[in-house]
Simulated scan of single mutants.
Amino acid sequence: METFASDDDYRFEDLLRDIRQSEAYNIWLLKRTLTSSELRAKEAVGVFWRPFSIIGGGRVGDSKPFRTVEQQIAILKSRGVSFRDEGYAASFLLRENYYAVVNGYKDALIDKQETNLAKEDRYARGTDFRHFELMYEFDKRLRDNTMALLLDCENLMKTAVVYSFCSIHQGQDDYLDPSCYCSKADFPKRGSYTKGLIRLLSTLQRLRDNGPHKAYISHYVSRYGCPPLWVLSKCLTFGSTSAFFDYQQQSVKNRTCVTLSQALGKGVVRQRDLAYAFHTLPEFRNICAHGERLYCARVGKLNDKGFGELLRALSYVAPADRLAEYSRSVLLLLDDVADESALIERKLLLGMGIARGDLQAR
Rank of each mutant, 00 (worst) to 15 (best):
D144R: 07
F238T: 02
Y175S: 09
D9G: 04
L16T: 10
R141W: 08
P51S: 03
M147Y: 11
C288N: 02
F48M: 02
E70M: 08
H213A: 15
D85V: 08
K140D: 04
K77A: 06
A100I: 04
S36I: 11
T68A: 15
S82I: 01
D85S: 14
L30G: 10
G56N: 13
E43K: 15
P228H: 07
L314R: 00
A41Q: 10
H279C: 07
K214N: 09
D7C: 07
T159Y: 09
A275N: 06
V101G: 02
Y220W: 02
A5L: 11
C226T: 10
V231F: 10
P178G: 03
Y175F: 11
A277W: 11
E114K: 04
E13D: 12
P319R: 10
Y220K: 01
G126H: 01
Q113T: 05
T115W: 02
F129A: 02
R125E: 12
G265C: 00
S183R: 15
M352Y: 09
A313Y: 05
N155H: 13
A90T: 03
Y295T: 02
V330H: 05
W28Y: 14
S251P: 12
A148C: 03
A24N: 08
V231A: 01
H169M: 15
D321P: 10
I19K: 06
R346E: 15
C288T: 03
D9C: 02
E43I: 13
L207T: 06
K195G: 14
L117R: 01
A338L: 04
D62S: 12
G126N: 03
L39S: 14
Q262V: 03
G225M: 08
V269A: 11
Y98S: 12
I168F: 14
I198W: 12
R122S: 02
L16W: 15
A74H: 09
V47Y: 01
Q360L: 13
F48K: 12
C180P: 05
L201T: 09
W49L: 04
L30N: 08
A243Y: 15
F187C: 10
L149A: 00
L343E: 14
A148L: 01
E325W: 04
G211C: 05
G267I: 06
L134T: 05
F52M: 13
L331R: 07
T280G: 05
I198P: 09
Q248N: 13
Q205R: 15
I55G: 07
G126C: 01
F138Y: 11
S179V: 09
V252S: 08
A318S: 10
H219P: 05
L310I: 00
L134I: 00
N254W: 06
F83S: 10
L94H: 06
T237V: 07
G126W: 05
L314S: 05
D177P: 04
S63G: 10
G191W: 05
W230T: 14
I217Y: 00
L109W: 05
G351L: 11
C235I: 02
L281E: 02
H131C: 06
G306C: 05
K189M: 13
L232P: 12
V69A: 08
K301Y: 06
Y193A: 11
R130L: 00
A89Y: 08
S251F: 05
A275C: 00
I198N: 14
I55K: 15
S218M: 07
E96T: 07
M157V: 13
D177I: 03
